[in-house]
Design a protein around this nucleic acid. Structure first.
Length: 471
RNA sequence: CGGGGAGUGGCGCAGCGGUAGCGCACCUGCUUUGGGUGCAGGAGGUCGGGGGUUCAAAUCCCCCCUCCCCGACCA
């Protein structure tokens, strides 16, 4: 029984496969304005789980949620030279309101550093007000020329956290801690996607930052995707927004800041990192439906048994859904649930029922198993964990298998056709980076060869650059 | 903004002078149901907009609009 081809195989045309999965799994579709996105209920349910996990980690670090306006005075953006320069090409500017031309145009936030820092300047007076850590869940708009659902859309959803500290060391330490404790942890433990962590090169860093930290993951086609970033802003914004505090000795000083964010792009990562030719494969922690109980064929007592089983699973704390619809055929329903990435499928028909068993199929591997009905509810949580570990292991193997250590530019270019290339930083240099960029390859991050984050005092000879084609 | 394409039912496409069709999806009925069942019937389109040529334009010509693909930035 070869699975019917419902999708373009990944090997044939990966981008097309991606679009088809997003559409057929009912994750999202394009909005009426180019670059905008409608996130459908099934897709949004996944996002809500990611959101909850992120929110939890952000708060654990000490940040509190707040909300700042969508509309920002254009003059705010202008205050930080590098910041405006970085964002001006992708700004959406509102020139009219209330039927009249506005005296000062307002921009729709591309990020909220400026408007949040305007508040910080008022809120921070004393060293006792520090550290100040604020997070917001919001939509932002960056006019995109080449949009792709979830990966690059004109409007997207994200969280952005902004912090202010009394010392450079404290801010720097936080920016690094965030990469590991918030983002890497989320990606690996919840999304099941292994990531590399490191620092962005000067040309890849955020507009207005003194350093940018990143988590990079490898997608199914070997290309890199930036999962989240954390920025050390130094005193750049503090200077232009005059964010000062009186320290213990009464001296007036500028704060040191960070900002960090992760977006709905993570949804795209989920699709591209775990998906296979049958569709989405969702890690159980974010799957809206963890187990679907499928009536394979109607028969005496089957519907009742399936219903009971679903209830038992729910009582065991599993997100279970019963599919006893008579209408689409069994095969069709199977294909649909596979497309949607449901981690576990339980099939129940008269034959199984007669034996007091049910067929269990894991989405992360081929093959079926049969389990006694009475044991299912207690076994499923462990099975879900196995699916999660299975997906993680497959993604980790893929990353390891397509990452090569190389010694020079030619080696980078060769390796980047398949995946990631780790090259000694001093073998690359700024000219090397330019040469790579001309070939469509970018430096994703700089790190220590053992995978640790680089320290400020590390000489280039002690570091490596990980290069790849990227989304 | 430079180069290349395309606009025809919800989606994907064919038709390229004689007044609109196919696949998928949708609706109804029967038949099926353990890996996208099969059959029959049905609904749905001022063929992107405007102008022109012609007895006759989705089709040919002109203008406009929009969208998509490839080259410079970004979560």
């Amino acid at each position: 029984m070869a699975p019917p081809s419902v999708l373009t195989p990944r090997a044939l045309d990966f981008p097309r496969w991606y679009q088809e999965v997003v559409a057929k799994a009912e994750l999202a579709e394009g909005g009426p304005v180019r670059g905008t996105m409608v996130i459908r209920p099934y897709g949004y349910a996944i996002w809500e789980r990611i959101q909850a996990e992120l929110d939890h980690r952000i708060k654990a670090l000490g940040a509190k949620n707040a909300y700042f306006p969508l509309l920002i005075p254009e003059s705010f953006l202008r205050r930080e030279a590098e910041h405006v320069e970085g964002f001006s090409p992708e700004l959406a500017v509102v020139t009219h309101g209330g039927g009249k031309a506005l005296e000062e145009p307002v921009v729709i936030r591309p990020t909220s550093e400026t408007i949040i820092n305007a508040s910080f300047a008022r809120w921070i007076q004393s060293h006792r007000d520090l550290p100040l850590m604020v997070n917001q869940w919001a939509n932002v708009v960056r006019w995109e020329l080449r949009p792709r659902l979830f990966l690059r859309t004109t409007e997207f959803l994200w969280h952005e956290a902004h912090t202010a500290h009394a010392s450079a060391e404290e801010a720097a330490a936080l920016a690094r801690r965030v990469v590991r404790q918030v983002y890497q942890d989320l990606c690996e433990e919840i999304l099941g996607i292994p990531v590399l962590v490191g620092r962005k090169t000067q040309r890849e860093r955020f507009a207005g930052a003194s350093a940018t930290w990143t988590c990079e993951a490898m997608m199914g086609d070997g290309k890199a995707l930036q999962m989240a970033t954390s920025h050390e802003l130094g005193q750049n914004f503090a200077k232009v927004f005059d964010i000062t505090f009186s320290d213990e000795s009464g001296e007036r000083r500028l704060v040191w800041q960070t900002s960090w964010g992760a977006s709905t792009r993570l949804m795209g990562a989920l699709v591209m990192a775990h998906g296979d030719d049958a569709g989405l494969r969702l890690p159980p922690p974010v799957a809206p439906v963890q187990v679907v109980v499928l009536v394979a064929r109607a028969g005496e007592g089957v519907a009742e048994a399936a219903h009971q089983l679903t209830q038992d699973l729910e009582r065991a704390g599993v997100r279970a859904q019963l599919d006893d619809r008579p209408e689409p055929s069994f095969g069709r329903r199977v294909v649909d649930w596979e497309l949607k990435g449901v981690p576990l499928r339980v099939e129940l028909g008269p034959r199984d029922l007669a034996e007091g068993r049910a067929v269990v199929v894991r989405r992360d591997q081929a093959g079926k198993a049969s389990l006694p009905l009475g044991q299912l509810a207690s076994e499923v949580p462990a099975l879900l964990d196995q699916v999660h570990q299975g997906l993680r292991a497959a993604a980790a193997e893929h990353l390891a298998g397509r990452t090569r250590r190389v010694e020079d530019l030619a080696g980078v270019l060769a390796a980047a056709r398949e995946g990631f290339a780790a090259v000694p930083l001093d073998a690359l240099g700024d000219e090397g980076e330019t040469a790579l960029n001309a070939e469509g390859v970018t430096v994703r991050l700089v790190r220590r060869p053992d995978g640790q984050l680089p320290a400020d005092e590390d000489p280039p000879a002690a570091l490596e650059a990980v290069c790849a084609r990227a989304y």
